[in-house]
Design a protein around this nucleic acid. Structure first.
Length: 409
RNA sequence: GGAGGCGUGCGUGAGUGGUUGAAACGAACUGUCUUGAAAACAGUUAUACCCGAAAGGGUAUCGAAGGUUCGAAUCCUUCCGCCUCCGCCA
C-alpha cells in the first residue's frame, strides 16, 4: 500500500511510477477524486458528532435526535466511498526506485553479471525429466494419476538431495544471523491481502473456502504477517529469517507452459530469506540477499546470470528486484531460479509494522525477501549441468557431505 | 466434535447505559533534591484520522464487525482469539 499523503502531495510522481509498471495512471485521479469527497464527508460528520455530544450532555434529547439520522446517513456514504477508495489504493503498486531500468517486459531487464562456464557436452545433453525417470528419482506420471498435472514425486536420491540443499542453505545463511523458521502454510485472508497478493494475481493462489484460509505461494506470505501491528526497537533491526516451507501455486494462465517435468509445479519446497530493516538499510540488505544467493549458487558451481528486473516486470510490491537465472543445458538458456525483492514500506504499511528510532520517532520498516533455494528448480539445474554421458549425475562437491553420496546412477 | 469460562491502556486490574481516553496500583521517562545512586515529591507516558499556515480544535478506538439508544467499555447479534473439562488424534 502506498502512503496516502504521498499520493495527495505528489500525484505526478505516483502516476509516473505506476505507469512504468504498466498500470493505468488514471487510477491516481480516481483515487484523489474519491479522497476529496471522503475528506469533506468526514469533516462534516465529525462536526455533527461533536454537536450531538454537546446536545446529548445537556439532555437536549429532541435536538440530538435530529442529528442521529444525518450522522447515520453520512456514515453510510463514507463507508461506500472508503471501500471504493481502498479498492483503488490496493491496486496501486509500489513505486520503482529511480535506478530501476524502465522497460515493458523481461526482455528489457538489465543483465548485471554473468558467472561460471556453460558446460560443454560431447554428447546430446538430456533434460531433467528424461534423466530423472531413467534414474528412478522423478515420477510425474504417477503423480498425475494421483494428483493431476503439475505434480511430481521426488524419490530416492532426489528426495535426499532436497534435504542436502536445505542443510547447505541453512549452514551458509544462518551464519549471517538469519533465524531458521518453519511457518504455517495456510494463512488468513487479511494476511494474504496485506502482503499484496490478493488484489492482483489472486487467481494464482489456492483458497480453502471451507476454512477461509489461503495456501501460501511462498513462505514470505506467512513470515511477513508474523509481526503485524508490532513496533520494533531500532536495535532489533535488521531482523532476518530463513524460512522453509512448501509453496502452492495454481499456475492459472500458464497452461501449456513448462508442462514437462518439475520446472513449474503446483507444489514445491523452498528455502527463503526474509529481512526487516530500517529504510536507510534496505538497499544494502537487498545487496546482501543477492550476494548470499550468489554464494549458494557459486557453491554449487552452476553457471548463472544476474538480472536487474525492469519496471514493467516488477511485481506489485517490489520497488526493485534482482533475479538469478541458472543455465539449463536442455533449454540452452538461463531460467529463473532465484529472485530478491525490496518491497520497501509497501507491505509494512498494510501490515502496520513500525520501528522506533533513538529519537522516539516511529516509522514503517522496510521488508525484503529472496530465494535461498527453490528446491525443484535447483534439482533441475544440478541434474542437467552435472549429467554424464552414461546418464548418471554427479553431486556438487558441497552437497556430498550432506547427501551421503557422490553420484546418482 | 461436545460443555463451560474469558478478552479493558506498557503490565496487573476497576468499571454494567450519561464529561470514561477510561479509577487504582505497578513499570518507564523527565524534573527537583543528591558528590553519584536510591528514596521522596511533581510531571509525562496510546494510536489513527479530519480541519488549520501555525497555535490549536475536532472525531474515532476498551478483541473485530454489525445492531439498540439522544448517549455504550457497559445491552443485543455474529465473528475471531485464548483458557478449562470430555472425546478424537501425529
Amino acid at each position: 500500500m502506498l502512503d496516502i499523503e504521498l499520493i495527495r502531495q505528489n500525484p505526478e510522481k505516483v502516476k509516473k511510477g505506476i505507469a512504468n509498471k504498466k498500470i493505468n495512471p488514471k487510477l491516481v485521479d480516481d483515487f484523489l477524486n474519491l479522497d476529496a469527497v471522503w475528506r469533506k464527508l468526514t469533516k462534516e460528520t465529525d462536526d455533527f458528532r461533536a454537536n450531538q455530544k454537546i446536545l446529548s450532555e445537556n439532555r437536549k434529547i429532541e435536538e440530538a435526535k435530529s442529528l442521529k439520522e444525518k450522522i447515520k446517513n453520512n456514515e453510510e456514504k463514507i463507508k461506500t466511498i472508503e471501500k471504493q477508495r481502498e479498492e483503488i489504493l490496493y491496486l496501486l503498486p509500489n513505486l520503482p526506485f529511480d535506478e530501476v531500468p524502465v522497460g515493458k517486459d523481461e526482455s528489457e531487464s538489465q543483465v548485471l553479471k554473468v558467472w561460471g562456464n556453460i558446460p560443454k557436452f560431447d554428447f546430446e545433453p538430456k533434460d531433467h525429466l528424461e534423466l530423472g525417470e531413467a534414474l528412478g528419482i522423478i515420477d510425474t506420471e504417477r503423480a498425475s494419476k494421483v494428483s493431476g498435472s503439475r505434480f511430481g514425486y521426488l524419490k530416492n536420491q532426489a528426495a535426499l538431495l532436497e534435504f542436502a540443499l536445505v542443510q547447505f542453505a541453512l549452514d551458509i545463511i544462518t551464519k549471517e544471523g538469519f533465524i531458521p523458521i518453519i511457518p504455517p502454510a495456510m494463512i488468513k485472508p487479511e494476511a494474504m491481502r496485506a502482503m499484496g497478493y490478493v488484489e492482483r494475481g489472486g487467481e494464482e493462489i489456492y483458497f480453502l473456502e471451507k476454512d477461509n484460509l489461503y495456501l501460501i505461494g511462498t513462505s514470505e506470505q506467512a513470515v511477513g504477517p508474523m509481526h503485524m501491528d508490532e513496533v520494533f526497537n531500532d536495535v532489533d533491526l535488521p531482523r532476518r529469517y530463513l524460512a522453509f516451507s512448501s509453496c502452492f501455486r495454481r499456475e492459472a494462465g500458464s497452461y501449456g507452459k513448462d508442462t514437462k517435468g518439475i520446472l513449474r509445479l503446483h507444489q514445491f519446497d523452498k528455502v527463503e530469506m526474509f529481512s526487516i530493516t530500517t529504510p536507510e538499510d534496505s538497499a544494502k540488505e537487498h545487496k546482501l540477499i543477492l550476494s548470499l544467493e550468489e554464494k549458494l549458487i557459486q557453491g554449487l558451481n552452476l553457471p548463472y546470470r544476474v538480472l536487474n528486473i525492469c519496471t514493467g516486470d516488477l511485481g506489485d510490491s517490489a520497488a526493485a528486484k534482482y533475479d538469478i537465472e541458472v543455465w539449463l543445458p536442455s533449454q540452452k538458456t538461463y531460467r529463473e531460479t532465484h529472485s530478491a525483492s525490496n518491497t520497501t514500506d509497501f507491505q509494512a504499511r498494510r501490515l502496520n509494522i513500525k520501528y522506533k528510532s533513538k529519537d522516539g520517532q516511529k516509522q514503517h520498516v522496510h521488508m525484503l525477501n529472496g530465494t535461498a533455494f527453490a528446491i525443484g528448480r535447483m534439482l533441475i539445474a544440478i541434474m542437467e549441468n552435472y549429467q554424464q554421458s552414461d546418464g548418471s549425475i554427479l553431486v556438487p562437491k558441497v552437497l556430498q557431505k550432506y547427501a551421503g553420496f557422490k553420484t546418482i546412477s
